[in-house]
Write a protein that binds this DNA or RNA. Sequence first.
DNA 1: ACGATAAGTATATGGCATACACTTATCTGT
DNA 2: ACAGATAAGTGTATGCCATATACTTATCGT
Lengths: 174, 174
Amino acid sequence: MRVLSEALALADERELDAVTMAALAQRLGVTTMALYRHVTNKADLLDGLVELLLAEAVQPAPQLAWPERLAAFATDLRATARRHPSVFPLLLERPAATAAARQARDEISLALADAGIPQQDTDQMQRLLSTAILGFALSEVAGRFDAQTAPQRDADFELLLEILTESIQSRLRA
Amino acid sequence: MRVLSEALALADERELDAVTMAALAQRLGVTTMALYRHVTNKADLLDGLVELLLAEAVQPAPQLAWPERLAAFATDLRATARRHPSVFPLLLERPAATAAARQARDEISLALADAGIPQQDTDQMQRLLSTAILGFALSEVAGRFDAQTAPQRDADFELLLEILTESIQSRLRA
DNA sequence: ACGATAAGTATATGGCATACACTTATCTGT
DNA sequence: ACAGATAAGTGTATGCCATATACTTATCGT
C-alpha cells in the first residue's frame, strides 16, 4: 500500500517521530484526514509498518544447510534493522501474531528440525534464538553499541552466531 | 527525587502513555510547569526513569560463584522488568552511558573474569550476555511471549541461562 | 449513463509539551 | 534577625498532534 511504503520511507529519511499523520499526508499530496480511509488510526499505521518490515526481513532459504540457514536469517534481520533503524524497535514492542511473524518463526523452526532438534524442543529453541538475534539487532540500531566500532560490532555478531550454533549442536547429543 | 519516583509509580499503575507532564504534576499537587524546575524536559524525565530502574535492577552479589552470580543478575533484571513493564522497554532504546549502566556491565564482567574468561574477551562476552538477557526480559514484558504460559516462560528463561553458562564454559577451553 | 462505493476535503476539538514572564518560599551569611 | 539571593512554583499562551463529524468529488460496475 502506498500509504505504508511512504510512511516507511519517511521514517527512514527522518525519524519515527517525524511520521505524523500530517507529514505523511503532505508527502502523499492529500489532506491529513484522507489517510483515515486507508488506516483506522495511527497504531494501525505503525502495525502496518512492522508487517512491511518483517516481510522484507524474512527470506526463506530452504536450499541451505541449517547453520548457514540460521546465519542467513540472522544476517537478513540485522540488515533490515540497519536499513530501517527507526521502525525496527517497534518489532519488539508489538505482539507479532501476524503472517510475516509466523513465517519468521517457521524459518528458524525448520532450520532446527533440519539440524535434528527433537520436535518437542524446536519451539522453545526457536524463541530463544529469535530473541537473542532480535535483541542484538535492536541494541545495535538503538545505539546501545555506539561505543563499539563497526568491525567490533561485526565481530560481536559473528560470536553470537557461533554461540547459538554451538548451543544447538550441544543439544543434539543430549 | 520525588518527581522521578512518582513518575515511576504512575507508569506502573497506569501505562507509560499515562505519564504526561500534566498528570504527573497533578499527582504531585503542583502545576505542570513546576516540573521543569526538576527536569529539563520530558526526555530527561524518561532518562531519569531508566536510571532509577537500572539502579533497582542491579544488585552486586560478589559472594556468589560465577554461575550463580550470572543467574542472579539475569533473575534480578527479569524481576525488575516485570515490576515495571511499561518503563523497561526504554532501557533498550536509550543509550546507557550512565553510572548504573556501567555497574551492570561490571557485574557481568566480574563474573566472567571469575569464571576464567581471558581479559581481552570479557567485554565482548559481556555485551552478548547482557543483550540476550535484556532481549528476553523485554520480549516477555512487551508481550512477545504472550502465547506461552507462565511456567513455559520460566522454562525458557532457565534454558537461556543454561545456554549462556554453557557457552562461557566452552570458551574456557578455547 | 447512473447509482453505488471509494477517496478526498473542510472544519473543529481536546490533549500534549513547553516557552515566557511573574510571584512566593526558603536558605545563607552577617 | 534580616537582606538578599536562589530555588520552587504559578498563569497564560502557543503550536503540534491525533482524530471526530459532515460534506464533496472521483471512479467503477452494470
